[in-house]
Amino acid sequence: MSRTPVRVVAVSAGLSSPSSTRLLADRLAEAVTKAAAAPVEVRVVELRDLAVDIAKHLVTGFPPPALRTALDAVTGADGLIAVTPVFTASYSGLFKSFFDLVDPDALTGMPVLIGATGGTARHSLVLEHALRPLFAYLRAVTVPTAVYAASEDWGAAGGRSGDGGLAERITRAGGELAALVAGRPVAAARSGKEDGEGDLDGSRARGAERDLEADLVPFEQQLARLGG
């Protein structure tokens, strides 16, 4: 039987082309697709292509059209894959800047699979001390398995069940994300998100446009809340 496809967006902050970060993002997306019961529609957001737009949004307070489309895709997804190269002991600045532009409430409850790439395995805990807290702040739900790929992993033998290699971790993480996505109503059916009241400085995100009227609190209620 045919079912509504779930939308999975993979954000890749790799800078080179080809990039191992993009390669990891693609492998993770493939693993989610294989594990999912429903058809999966994968969309990859390459932050490299949006780097200048991201900088413009930071200084003007609104996104140029291509960035707006990408932000809408991320906040409207059923599940998110977020992969960054490790730069100077953390996620890359580009990766952070992109997520700085996502409305702080827009990823609440979003299943997220985090991944990172680096030259050596010594930075693998970046996933736990940098990426996972970032998504915890955004109240997203990160899957237990985070996938780190060092350069050496791409040449290691593996793919056999139980060897703990990159392929096995990718498969496990993809399965975890697919299970979480399957447990939620599809994005189209979810309601809009409120943006952060009191966030007035204009420099923060306003990625996804909301259904203004659906979110509106009638004025009498706004007055009543004050209790005056």
Partner: peptide, 29 residues
């Protein structure tokens, strides 16, 4: 207000005017 629907609602409630300072904003918003 530039982006707070609460303020559009407030203006509407009183029958006051609503000014959208759109100078830094895309027209769709």
């Amino acid at each position: 207000s530039i982006r707070s629907p609460e303020i559009a609602e407030q203006a509407a409630y009183y029958g006051d005017g609503f000014f959208h300072n759109n100078i830094f904003w895309p027209q769709e918003h």
